[in-house]
C-alpha cells in the first residue's frame, strides 16, 4: 500500500527525515509516535503525496510518488482519507456538504449517495448537526466530521495526524473506536500521535504496530502492542 525505501526529505542541507524504510501492509494498523517536531506530519505528507521524497523511493498504491503528475496525485488522494488535527473545512458550507466534498469533486455525488452520506453522518454521531456550519461545531464534532469526510470515498488507507489533539479523553476514545472499527472493516490506518495513553487504549481493540520517529529516523519499527 505504502512502501518506502531509504526515503529522505528535507529543506536545504538539514534532512527532516532520512533513511526511512518501511511498508504499510493492507489492513494493518499503525501508530506513528515521537516528540513534537520529529517529522510525523512530514512523514504523513509523504504518504499522501503532498511532499515528494528528496531521495530514496516512496511508492503509493504501487505508483512511484516521485513521478506522479498533479492529476495522478489528486486521483490517488481519492483513495486516501486524511484527518488533520486542525481539520480544515469550507466554512461557508454546511457540515453535510463538507463531508460530501470528496464525492462532489470526484463527480460521484447524487441522490444515490444521499442514503450512504446520511448513514455515515449518523455513524459519527452528527445527524443533529448536519446542517450546521463548521465554525459552529465543537472540537470533537469537527474531528468526527473530518473523519467522516476522510472515509466517505471508502478509501483503502486512512491517515490521521494527531486526530485527538483538540478533544477530551472521552472523545479521543470515541474517535479511536471509530478508527478501530474501520480497521476491522479492512482499512489500513496510520495514526500520528504523541499520546501514549491513546496507544495503550488501542491495545484492547486492535493489533497495532508502533513506529517511533526520532532524529529523522524510524526506530523501534514493528514493535507490537
Amino acid at each position: 500500500m505504502i512502501d518506502m525505501q531509504d526515503a529522505a526529505f528535507g529543506y536545504g542541507a538539514d534532512p527532516i527525515l532520512s533513511a526511512i524504510s518501511l511498508r504499510l501492509a493492507p489492513g494493518s494498523f499503525h501508530f506513528l509516535t515521537g516528540p513534537s517536531g520529529a517529522g510525523k506530519t512530514t512523514f504523513l505528507k509523504l504518504c499522501y503525496g503532498e511532499l515528494v521524497a528528496t531521495s530514496g523511493a516512496v511508492t503509493i498504491f504501487g505508483q512511484d510518488a516521485g513521478t506522479l503528475d498533479r492529476d495522478r496525485v489528486a486521483k490517488t488522494r481519492q483513495r486516501i482519507g486524511v484527518v488533520h488535527q486542525d481539520c480544515e473545512f469550507l466554512d461557508h458550507l454546511p457540515i453535510r456538504e463538507n463531508i460530501a466534498l470528496p464525492l462532489i469533486v470526484s463527480g460521484r455525488d447524487g441522490p444515490a449517495q444521499d442514503a450512504n452520506l446520511d448513514e455515515l453522518i449518523a455513524w459519527v454521531g452528527l445527524s443533529a448537526r448536519a446542517h450546521a456550519r463548521p465554525p459552529e461545531l465543537s472540537g470533537g464534532e469537527r474531528q468526527r466530521a473530518a473523519l467522516a469526510r476522510a472515509i466517505i470515498m471508502d478509501p483503502d488507507l486512512i491517515l490521521a495526524d494527531e486526530p485527538t489533539g483538540n478533544v477530551d479523553w472521552d472523545m479521543s476514545l470515541r474517535l479511536l473506536q471509530l478508527l478501530c472499527e474501520l480497521n476491522k472493516m479492512g482499512k489500513t490506518v496510520l495514526i500520528a500521535t504523541h499520546d501514549m495513553a491513546l496507544i495503550r487504549a488501542a491495545k484492547a481493540q486492535v493489533q497495532a504496530r508502533v513506529l517511533r520517529l526520532a532524529g529523522g529516523r524510524i526506530s523501534a519499527a514493528g514493535a507490537d502492542l
Binding site: E50, R70, D71, A74, K75, T76, R77, Q78, V82, E88, F89, L90, D91, L101, P102, V105, S106, R149, M153
Partner: peptide, 16 residues
Amino acid sequence: QQVIRVMRLVGARDVY
C-alpha cells in the same frame, strides 16, 4: 487558500 488546500486534500484536480 484554505478552500484550495481542502479541495486538494480531498482529491480535487486542478482543472476542477
